[in-house]
Computed example of a mutant assay.
Amino acid sequence: MPTPAEPPVEHGETGAWSWHHAGLVVRRLDAAIEFYREALGYRVEFLVRDMDDQFQRTVGVPGVVCDLAQLVAPFTATRLELLEVRGVPAGTPPHLPVHVGVGHGAYQVRDLDAAVARLFACGGAPIGEIVEFSEGRAVYCWTPSGTVVELEEAWI
């Protein structure tokens, strides 16, 4: 990853400079962590339980709660984010990133507001709202093909 002395090269209309993680909604977080740890050698880098308000605002679904873990692959340092989501209201559209098997790709950008505007100009659309996390601001967006992209404001 680039250092402050070595500014990142930005790519595409959004100015993405880093692939941060791939995310996947799972049925049971602890079982998924154990599988990826045992079968593929991943290690847990970050774990949070009972994320409510921030997650609800990010996915645009009131009442949901998630447990979230970011795992790191031992062979590439690639991050895999696993989310167990509870409290999904009946009738929630199946393509929303609160259902088992739905995934997203997360990219880091320098200026989130500008990146979001450029993503929308390319045909993207918001899912929830821009939310402040301890690591920085982030937002989930639809792509024109119906997949989910997360943009995270860089904290370098």
Rank of each mutant, 00 (worst) to 15 (best):
F75S: 15
A73I: 05
C66A: 13
E81N: 01
V61D: 01
V72T: 11
E84G: 01
A77V: 06
L71F: 01
V65W: 02
D67R: 10
L80N: 05
V88F: 00
T76D: 10
L71C: 02
C66F: 01
V61T: 06
D67Y: 10
L83M: 14
P62E: 09
V65N: 01
L71K: 08
T58M: 12
G60S: 07
V59E: 00
V85L: 02
V72S: 13
P74C: 03
V85D: 11
V85M: 14
V59W: 03
P62F: 11
P93D: 11
G91C: 13
G87W: 01
V64Q: 08
Q70H: 11
G87D: 12
V85W: 03
D67M: 05
G63H: 10
F75H: 15
G60V: 11
F75N: 12
L82H: 04
R86A: 11
P93S: 13
V64A: 10
F75G: 14
T78Q: 15
E84M: 07
D67P: 08
G91E: 06
V65C: 06
V65M: 06
D67V: 07
V64G: 04
A69G: 14
D67K: 03
G60F: 04
T76Q: 09
D67E: 12
G87P: 07
T76L: 02
R86G: 00
F75L: 14
T58A: 10
F75I: 10
D67L: 03
P74F: 13
G91I: 12
Q70C: 02
V65L: 10
V59Y: 02
P62L: 10
L83N: 10
F75C: 05
L80S: 01
C66V: 00
V65I: 11
V65D: 00
L82M: 13
L71D: 06
V64W: 08
V88P: 04
T78W: 02
V65K: 13
A69T: 10
C66M: 05
C66W: 00
R86Q: 14
A77Q: 15
V72G: 03
A69S: 08
T78V: 09
L83H: 04
A69C: 14
A73H: 08
V61R: 04
C66Q: 09
E84R: 05
T78D: 13
L68A: 06
G87C: 15
P89C: 05
G87N: 11
T76M: 09
L71Y: 02
V61Q: 05
T78I: 12
L82W: 08
V88G: 10
